[in-house]
């Protein structure tokens, strides 16, 4: 998790766009505002791994469904760039709302997930947030998390990876209800930074937990 305190202070975020549709890539490029600079594009798994290794961007906007490779799509790109995970963050893009697509790419190491229908302003904000080392949760991803971890808060005896704390549950619920981080912070009387910390903690649990219910949930949706 690299934190760049100077983001937004004149510095630009170096971005690589990975998507197999040229039209979508050019549209997305036009949507990103002045705070970021697109240093590379790729349309297949192999291209993506090569471009990411060559340009070493801070953020990769990664389509979940990609041709090439072994058929693993975005997940495979993240696995192929594992050595760079310390400096490069991945933000998953998808037209699919299917849980198996979203959760599998998050568990592979992506820092967040947004749908392709997202507006230009929102995607720019999301890229900055990911570049700052934070996680980006859409309402739908928050819904998946609540579904997978259950909506009952953790007991003290529980393994901390296996359940969400009461506060994390509150944050997830508000995000699922369509609240922005700012609105969540206002609603819970905490700072945005604290919201970001909670969200990052949830992301870590989603990536690392081997909780029985989560495994079962994933297996039911053919994620494993």
């Amino acid at each position: 998790m690299t934190i760049n305190p100077d983001t937004g202070a004149g510095r630009t975020v170096r971005v690589v766009i990975v998507d197999d549709h040229t039209i979508f890539r050019s549209g997305l490029k036009a949507d990103l505002d002045a705070r970021m600079h697109v240093v590379g594009e790729a349309g297949t798994v192999e291209e993506a791994i090569a471009v990411i290794a060559g340009t070493r961007p801070e953020v990769v906007l990664l389509d979940v469904h990609l041709p090439g490779g072994l058929g693993g799509g975005g997940r495979e790109v993240i696995a192929g760039s594992a050595a760079l995970l310390g400096t490069t963050s991945f933000l998953a893009l998808s037209v699919s709302d299917a849980a198996e697509d979203v959760v599998s790419v998050i568990r592979a190491g992506a820092r967040g997930y947004v749908t392709k229908t997202i507006s230009g302003k929102e995607i720019s904000d999301a890229v900055i947030r990911v570049a700052d080392g934070d996680a980006v949760f859409s309402p739908r991803l928050a819904g998946f998390v609540l579904d997978a971890f259950g909506t009952a808060p953790a007991d003290i005896a529980d393994d901390e990876l296996d359940r969400l704390s009461a506060r994390e549950l509150e944050v997830m619920r508000l995000i699922a209800r369509g609240y922005s981080y700012k609105e969540v912070a206002k609603e819970l009387f905490i700072s945005i930074k604290t919201v970001e910390t909670h969200v990052s903690a949830v992301l870590r649990k989603l990536q690392l937990s081997s909780r029985h219910e989560l495994t079962k949930w994933a297996a039911e949706r053919r994620l494993l």
Binding site: P139, G143, L146, T151, R173, A176, R177, G178, Y179
Partner: peptide, 19 residues
């Protein structure tokens, strides 16, 4: 603009939020 609807159903109750 976009309307957000969140449905949470547990054994004890059902809640819907429309924002």
């Amino acid at each position: 603009g976009t309307v957000s609807v969140y449905l949470e159903s547990t054994a004890g109750s059902t809640e819907i939020f429309i924002k």
